[in-house]
Lab assay of single mutants.
Amino acid sequence: PTIVLKVSPEELKALEKAGVEIEKIEKNEDGELYITLTPEALKKAGFE
């Protein structure tokens, strides 16, 4: 199962800087950012 999270541009930068593997980055028509994370990326980021 993949996880989709709504993030701010600042959060996205912080995640990328931390080396979190982001599978997909999407922006909706309201300009909101959503990222898709794999279970492996979540484990690496410390989420179980």
Score class of each variant (00 low, 15 high):
L37T: 14
E29H: 10
F47T: 06
V7W: 01
L42I: 08
E40N: 04
G19Y: 04
N28W: 08
Y34R: 07
T38L: 03
G31V: 01
E16V: 13
E48D: 12
L33V: 14
K27D: 05
K13Y: 15
S8R: 11
L42V: 10
G19D: 04
E48R: 02
S8A: 05
T36M: 08
E16Y: 15
L5E: 01
V20Y: 03
E32N: 11
K43E: 14
E23K: 07
K13I: 10
L33W: 10
F47N: 05
I3A: 05
A14M: 14
E21C: 05
L42D: 01
V7F: 02
K6A: 05
Y34I: 09
V20H: 01
G19N: 07
F47K: 08
L42Q: 06
P1L: 13
V20K: 00
P9H: 09
V7K: 01
I3T: 11
I3K: 06
I25L: 08
K13H: 11
E21S: 07
E16D: 05
E48K: 02
P39S: 11
I35Q: 00
E29L: 10
D30L: 11
D30E: 11
L12M: 07
E23W: 15
L15T: 01
L12Y: 08
I35Y: 01
P1S: 10
T36Q: 06
K17A: 11
E29C: 06
V20D: 00
F47P: 03
A18D: 04
F47E: 06
E10N: 10
E32A: 13
K27F: 13
I35E: 00
L15V: 03
K6V: 05
E21L: 07
E32W: 14
A45S: 08
P9K: 13
K43G: 08
G19L: 05
F47M: 13
T2Q: 10
T38N: 04
L15M: 09
N28L: 11
I25P: 01
I22A: 02
A14C: 15
P9W: 09
L37K: 00
L15S: 00
E16A: 10
A41V: 02
D30A: 11
F47R: 08
T2W: 15
K44L: 10
A14D: 05
E29N: 10
L12W: 09
F47Y: 06
E48F: 06
A41W: 09
E10R: 12
Y34P: 00
A45Q: 02
T2C: 14
E32I: 11
E11N: 06
L12S: 01
L42M: 13
E21Q: 08
K27Y: 13
G19S: 05
L5K: 05
L12Q: 01
D30C: 15
E11Q: 15
A41P: 01
T38R: 04
G46W: 06
E26H: 09
I35N: 00
E10F: 15
G31K: 03
E21P: 09
E16P: 00
K44C: 06
I22S: 01
I25F: 06
K17T: 10
G46F: 04
A41T: 04
K17M: 12
E23D: 07
E29K: 12
Y34K: 04
K24H: 10
P39V: 15
G46R: 06
V20G: 01
I22R: 01
E11D: 11
I25S: 03
E32F: 14
G31S: 04
N28F: 07
A14F: 14
A18L: 15
Y34C: 05
E40I: 05
P9M: 06
E21D: 09
A45F: 10
T36S: 08
P9G: 07
E26A: 08
N28C: 11
E11F: 15
I22C: 03
E48N: 05
K17C: 08
E32Q: 13
P9A: 09
E21F: 10
E40S: 06
Y34F: 11
E11K: 14
T36V: 06
V20A: 08
L12I: 08
L42G: 03
E23V: 09
K24R: 12
K43W: 09
E11L: 15
V7Q: 01
P9I: 09
K44M: 08
E29T: 09
E11R: 14
E23F: 15
T38P: 02
E21M: 07
E26T: 11
K24V: 06
K13P: 01
G19F: 06
T38I: 02
A18Y: 12
T2A: 12
A41R: 02
V20I: 14
A41D: 05
T36C: 06
I3F: 09
V7D: 00
I22G: 01
P1C: 15
K17I: 11
E16K: 14
G19P: 01
L15A: 02
E48C: 08
K43R: 14
A14S: 09
A41H: 02
G31I: 01
E40Y: 05
I25A: 04
L37Y: 02
L5C: 07
D30V: 13
P9Y: 07
K27A: 08
V4G: 02
T36W: 15
A45P: 06
I3D: 01
K27C: 14
S8T: 10
L37E: 00
V4W: 08
K44R: 04
G19W: 03
